[in-house]
Amino acid sequence: MLLEVQDLSVEFDTRDGVVRAVDGVGLALAAGETLAVLGESGSGKSVTAQAVMGILDSPPGRITGGRVLFQGRDLLTLSAEERRRIRGERMAMIFQDALSALNPVLTVGFQLAEMFRVHRGMSRRESAARAVGLMDRVGIPAAARRAGDYPHQFSGGMRQRVMIAMALALEPELIIADEPTTALDVTVQAQVMDLLAELRREYRMGLILITHDLGVVADVADRIAVMYAGRIVEQAPVRELYRRPAHQYTRGLLESVPRLDRKGRELAAIRGLPPSPSRVPSGCAFHPRCPVAREMCRADPVPPLYQVRMAAEPAADAAGRTSACHFWKETVGG
């Protein structure tokens, strides 16, 4: 396994007391694999990514439990200096908002070249040439000229390409992309997703895609983990998850999206609202919004992650499908 997150918990100190934003999250990613972490706002998906990357704002946030194994080594036990070296070189992150992630007073070429100078000890001239080559590789036209431009001089799509180039520079084994195309227009979104998928194949990187968009990940992810109220509620290979979701929340999400290829009269909306992280319901956190919730769903403890096994789908067995729904059997079947 390239990355294994075990039982990760993150808490925040807020005015309303301690809030548990991530609660016992487990994830695994093999080399070269793409895992999508899907969730709505407040589900804990971005905090999970920040904790894995080691860029969690602390205080107010702090990791209260769990392990983050990167090629077998627990990152949480490393010193700040050791983590800094791994970050960038072995694992890199792509953010949603490239404009605030890039330094506005340095040219794009300088920022890219800096990676090679600091981490690889290259000369000024050599690193500048590498920067231009990289910009060319991610499809920025007239790369040599544009290397002298500042981030604000690029369009949203081009800026996201610069971010990708930056993440790619040192050829890391793992890239975490947090909503990489959310701020982009549809046609540009398609360009950037394609580029990301292509580069992942070429460099054989592991990719974790953090997103709220069910459509964007359907084509590119191998597996999907669905988060709700700080926990993973379902994990499955992409095809199985979309065809036969094993958790009522996943099912509700899929049914509530308007689709281009199906014009229905009424959308099957999930009732109610996602819970605030400071007031997570007892038992299964989804129970107040769930159409099939029963007595046992309302009571603690939180449902465990059940192994989802289906006779009709032996491949899914091997892939370790899980669901935190007491009634996953009827959910999958019905």
Partner: peptide, 13 residues
């Protein structure tokens, strides 16, 4: 524009 819209269904790609 229409062809770029992602469909939440890996089979219907």
């Amino acid at each position: 524009l229409l062809s770029a819209v992602p469909t939440p269904d890996p089979g219907a790609s």
